[in-house]
Simulated scan of single mutants.
Amino acid sequence: MIGLAVVDDQHLIRDGLTMMLNNESDMQVKIEASNGRELLDLLDAGALIDAVLLDLRMPVLDGIQTLHELNRRPRRPSVLVVTTFDRDELVLDAIAAGADGYILKRTSRPELITAVRAVAHGRSVLAPDITRAVLARVRQHTRATASTDVAEYRLTPRETDILSLVGQGLNNDEIAARLTVSTHTVKTHLTNVLAKTGSRDRVQVALLAIRAGLA
């Protein structure tokens, strides 16, 4: 059972997320808090959770400050930022502060549930629009660095195409449309890319593509 905390200062959002998550057989919301301070106090009281769904703009202790406080703790839960804000600086600040995932509140229910499971199990998640913003900023900082040679990974031509398009920030449906293949085929090739390159998740694949000059 995945133990969760929902932290948002808007009651309707908090209640809606809690109801949605508790409807999943493998999830249970153990903490509801209206700001970061409430979350930390409940954790100090002994509540054990696997992942936090965290808003950014909150009173008393906002999301970025809460991330910094969580980083000081010996047992730090994974953190999925769930917010309405998609400005580049906020995304980068959250990631720099230790967020394991960043999605927007307009995300669909299936995508949200998938993101929660992924973050709870140690993987990174970024919404497609957020991925593009992050990759654009990473490119600015990596233009002068030496590129990575991907030949050692022995990727097929199609796997190399997938690597390149992930590095451009495209999601699976967009890649499928670009290559005129099914989404299932894209997922299969991406799984092969992950295995061959030793990448943990899609974000690492995208960074590899950038370093290799394929994005």
Score class of each variant (00 low, 15 high):
residue 22 N to D: 15
residue 53 L to K: 09
residue 41 D to A: 08
residue 149 D to R: 13
residue 23 N to S: 13
residue 150 V to F: 01
residue 22 N to A: 07
residue 114 T to L: 04
residue 178 R to Q: 14
residue 207 L to C: 07
residue 162 I to N: 11
residue 4 L to A: 12
residue 15 D to I: 10
residue 137 R to G: 00
residue 85 F to H: 14
residue 136 A to M: 09
residue 89 E to Y: 06
residue 162 I to A: 09
residue 123 R to P: 01
residue 88 D to Y: 00
residue 181 V to Q: 14
residue 153 Y to H: 13
residue 199 S to W: 04
residue 84 T to Q: 07
residue 143 R to G: 00
residue 212 A to P: 03
residue 177 A to V: 06
residue 76 R to C: 08
residue 201 D to P: 08
residue 66 T to P: 04
residue 123 R to W: 00
residue 8 D to T: 05
residue 51 A to R: 10
residue 82 V to F: 14
residue 121 H to T: 12
residue 107 T to A: 15
residue 15 D to W: 05
residue 80 L to A: 05
residue 94 A to W: 04
residue 182 S to K: 04
residue 59 P to N: 10
residue 158 R to L: 09
residue 165 L to Y: 06
residue 99 A to T: 12
residue 97 A to L: 06
residue 8 D to L: 04
residue 187 K to F: 09
residue 107 T to E: 13
residue 149 D to F: 03
residue 168 Q to T: 14
residue 55 D to I: 12
residue 77 P to F: 04
residue 22 N to P: 11
residue 188 T to M: 12
residue 120 A to P: 04
residue 9 D to F: 01
residue 106 R to Y: 00
residue 197 T to G: 09
residue 48 L to D: 13
residue 76 R to T: 11
residue 212 A to Y: 00
residue 93 D to L: 10
residue 59 P to K: 11
residue 182 S to G: 14
residue 26 D to M: 10
residue 130 I to M: 03
residue 162 I to K: 09
residue 129 D to G: 08
residue 108 S to Y: 01
residue 39 L to R: 10
residue 180 T to S: 15
residue 78 S to N: 13
residue 87 R to M: 02
residue 14 R to E: 08
residue 160 T to I: 04
residue 36 G to L: 11
residue 139 R to P: 00
residue 75 R to C: 03
residue 186 V to L: 07
residue 115 A to M: 08
residue 44 D to N: 14
residue 13 I to K: 06
residue 4 L to C: 10
residue 195 A to R: 10
residue 81 V to S: 11
residue 191 T to S: 15
residue 56 L to N: 09
residue 4 L to K: 11
residue 20 M to S: 03
residue 144 A to Q: 14
residue 30 K to N: 08
residue 117 R to M: 03
residue 198 G to R: 04
residue 188 T to I: 08
residue 110 P to F: 01
residue 115 A to R: 14
residue 169 G to Y: 05
residue 154 R to H: 13
residue 90 L to D: 11
residue 212 A to D: 02
residue 55 D to F: 01
residue 45 A to E: 11
residue 110 P to M: 03
residue 160 T to H: 02
residue 194 L to R: 13
residue 96 A to M: 06
residue 20 M to R: 12
residue 132 R to N: 06
residue 2 I to A: 07
residue 67 L to Y: 09
residue 127 A to T: 04
residue 134 V to N: 12
residue 133 A to Y: 02
residue 186 V to Y: 09
residue 41 D to W: 01
residue 29 V to M: 06
residue 182 S to V: 04
residue 17 L to P: 00
residue 110 P to K: 06
residue 204 Q to F: 05
residue 186 V to C: 06
residue 52 V to S: 13
residue 114 T to P: 01
residue 202 R to F: 07
residue 187 K to R: 15
residue 41 D to L: 12
residue 23 N to I: 00
residue 214 L to A: 15
residue 163 L to N: 06
residue 189 H to P: 01
residue 193 V to Q: 10
residue 173 D to G: 04
residue 83 T to W: 03
residue 128 P to E: 05
residue 33 A to M: 08
residue 196 K to Y: 05
residue 143 R to N: 02
residue 155 L to E: 01
residue 18 T to S: 07
residue 97 A to I: 12
residue 75 R to G: 03
residue 130 I to F: 01
